[in-house]
């Protein structure tokens, strides 16, 4: 039976996750704020709230400063309810600002992770006052994983509700979508390489329909079954690696990248910081045993 448990994590693992996620989050926020200077197509909250202060130098400076301060507190694990709450609000404003540049980055996953963490800290603070630091950490990481898994589940349900299983059958149509994607870059740069890459990818997809259909079927299955990552730590790593492998496979065959999804999978599902730490400890042990022998 499917029974997700809140897994146990050490303070060291949580610290590694905080550092990696903090750097990733603030890098994205600063990048967006410095890259854009107008709101050409207001979307989402930008239709309700005036975000034009993000077009101004003082507005940009204040947001960057507050984002940097938030991340310092976040990494130090201090005042986490307020810090994650603030990070969530900054994320909502800045990512809405990015969405309003007529782009579809699907950055919602980042804000959902922050929201999940904020809810976990708030829940422990107001409903489980006796909870120790370890309980809080475990719930925060569990919520972060749930937020990531939710996005994949939603993507799978969207495919099934929009196209049903014909999504797999129609997969070779991707050739024209990929051509379009490359042409978006080509018409900006007029680089002949982009045109030849567009033709190469679309011809490859059109001439290997079965391969693309199998790849799509695996993608759909992985997105639907990703929720098993919540059962235990081993499955979490396995699901994380499978989803990352799929992202790389899709990028290789189609040129479509979702780098921020890969980063979040590496931090929270694969727990890359912990894996690297284990490898370092193991290699140190091997080296010291070699010296003693």
């Amino acid at each position: 039976m499917f029974k997700p448990d809140i897994q146990k994590f050490s303070e060291k693992e949580w610290k590694t996750m905080r550092i990696l996620f903090g750097i990733f989050w603030v890098h994205g926020i600063v990048n967006i704020i410095t890259n854009f200077s107008s709101i050409p197509v207001p979307r989402g909250w930008a239709l309700i709230i005036d975000l034009s202060f993000l077009d101004t130098i003082p507005g940009k400076s204040i947001f960057i400063l507050v984002a940097l301060l938030s991340v310092i507190f976040y990494v130090k694990n201090a005042k986490m309810i307020y810090v994650t709450g603030l990070m969530f609000l900054i994320g909502i404003c800045v990512h809405t600002y990015q969405d309003s540049q007529a782009t579809d980055i699907y950055n919602e996953i980042i804000n959902l992770v922050v929201l999940g963490q904020f809810l976990a800290f708030s829940y422990c603070r107001y409903f489980k006052r006796s909870a120790g630091e370890d309980v809080v950490i475990n719930l925060v990481i569990h919520n972060s994983k749930q937020a990531i898994i939710a996005c994949y589940l939603i993507a799978a349900i969207s495919k099934l509700s929009d196209a049903g299983l014909s999504w797999i059958i129609d997969a070779p149509n991707l050739s024209v979508a990929i051509y379009k994607m490359y042409m978006h870059n080509y018409v900006g740069l007029l680089s002949p390489e982009l045109l030849s890459t567009a033709l190469a990818y679309s011809t490859f997809i059109a001439s290997h329909p079965l391969l693309i259909q199998v790849l799509f079927a695996i993608v759909l299955l992985a997105e639907l079954l990703g929720i098993v990552a919540l059962v235990n730590r081993q499955l979490s790593v396995v699901v994380g690696i499978v989803l990352i492998a799929l992202h790389f496979g899709i990028a290789y065959f189609t040129g479509i990248h979702f780098d921020h999804f890969v980063v979040l999978l590496l931090i929270f599902l694969v727990n890359i910081g912990y894996v690297v730490n284990l490898v370092l400890i193991f290699s140190k042990k091997v080296l010291s045993s070699d010296k003693s022998s």
């Binding site: 989402g44 699907y106 939603i154 969207s158 495919k159 509700s161 196209a163 129609d170 024209v176 379009k180």
Partner: peptide, 21 residues
């Protein structure tokens, strides 16, 4: 689609005709 929510319609429907400007 309103932050932080989305239905993530990433190529959820792939029509046989596409377009660009």
């Amino acid at each position: 689609k309103i932050q932080p929510f989305s239905t993530f319609p990433v190529y959820s429907h792939i029509p046989p005709v596409s377009e660009y400007y």
